[in-house]
């Protein structure tokens, strides 16, 4: 799940037609853990928050195909090639369910895609980093899918039914991806010195961007309180990030590679790891479009979309001809 941009974008002004009674009744349903369905009444701001979050998540799945797709043609064994291709295919599928879930809220996929292509819509900053070696494919599965799972498991209980149900299916697949990524790392770490160095280098480059996936610190996170009240969000950014660090540091120890944080230490009192400060300027820059691959990722998507225009036009022309023939 790659919805960190949520806290930066948008500005939800409630429209005047919503009465205090309607809002109270809605909150009561949410508090009672009832699922809100597409046809149910919902506050406009709830609807818009969900559209933004779900479409950002969908876009992230689609853009995320690029850094991993970058190693498909060079995967080092046929088995790894098949596993990676299946993973990239899963991500396309996640994009598809998520677009469908967002469509239940009254926005079209064409509109969402147009917003992605114009640069208006955000996607997760993590996919604006390059995959430079094969170990990056391991690191993405292990760390990025790992962080995604931390974020997404609570979303399986999201108050909005279609999103929650999409997440149940997505989470199952993300946990496969996480295990497969860890398995790549483990194989590298048990391999030659050069392979282990490749794994360490990947952890060095992916560690901090992975921590950024959880979004800004709670003190900076503008929309969190409302999202929590609506039970779209169940845990704060910092809570989820801490959980991720606690689990992942131990996995790095098992692999025998070092987490690139001099301030990292275990605090026996709290039972958690304390860790160093994230470079928030880097996060802000990458979200604003100034990461190593933002331009490349968006251009590739725009290029594919433009190159496909004649194909979509042909399919549409054929469908209308068929409809006319059937009517005749």
């Amino acid at each position: 799940m790659y919805t960190q941009g949520l806290d930066q974008a948008g500005n939800d002004k409630q429209s005047g037609v919503e009465t205090a009674e309607q809002l109270a009744a809605f909150q009561k349903r949410v508090d009672a853990e009832e699922k809100i369905e597409a046809k149910d009444w919902m506050p406009e701001a709830y609807r818009r928050t969900l559209i933004r979050q779900i479409s950002q998540h969908a876009h992230s799945e689609i853009i995320g195909m690029q850094p991993e797709g970058n190693w498909l043609t060079r995967a080092p064994s046929l088995k790894r090639k098949a596993i990676l291709l299946a993973k990239v295919q899963d991500e396309a599928g996640h994009g598809l369910y998520l677009y469908s879930a967002a469509e239940t809220l009254g926005v079209s996929r064409d509109q969402m895609v147009a917003d992605l292509l114009s640069g208006k819509a955000k996607y997760s900053s993590i996919f604006n980093y390059p995959t430079l070696t094969w170990a990056d494919i391991g690191a993405i599965g292990w760390l990025v899918d790992g962080a995604a799972i931390m974020n997404q498991i609570p979303l399986c209980r999201c108050s909005y039914g279609p999103y929650a149900r999409a997440m149940v299916r997505v989470c199952k697949e993300e946990s496969f991806h996480q295990r497969q990524g860890f398995d790549i790392m483990l194989t590298l770490c048990r391999g030659t010195a050069a392979q282990k160095a490749m794994a360490q280098d990947a952890l060095n480059r992916w560690w901090w961007p992975s921590l950024m996936m959880f979004g800004p610190n709670d003190t900076e996170s503008k929309h969190s309180a409302q999202s929590m009240a609506w039970k779209i969000k169940r845990f704060s950014n910092d809570e989820l990030r801490q959980k991720f660090v606690d689990v992942t540091v131990q996995q790095a120890e098992f692999l025998g590679i070092r987490v690139p944080d001099d301030e990292l230490s275990f605090d026996p009192e709290s039972g958690h790891y304390t860790f160093g400060e994230i470079d928030w300027q880097e996060f802000i820059d990458v979200v604003a479009g100034n990461g190593p691959c933002n331009k490349q990722r968006l251009e590739k998507r725009q290029y594919a979309h433009n190159e496909g225009e004649w194909v979509r036009a042909a399919a549409q022309a054929y469908a209308s001809k068929q409809a006319a023939r059937a009517a005749a």
């Binding site: 195909m65 690029q66 797709g69 396309a92 598809l96 590739k300 594919a304 496909g308 979509r312």
Partner: peptide
């Protein structure tokens, strides 16, 4: 697989 992420629509991906 060279065509991954370059298809004209998501269903074709």
């Amino acid at each position: 697989i060279e065509l991954v992420a370059a298809e004209p629509e998501l269903e074709e991906e």
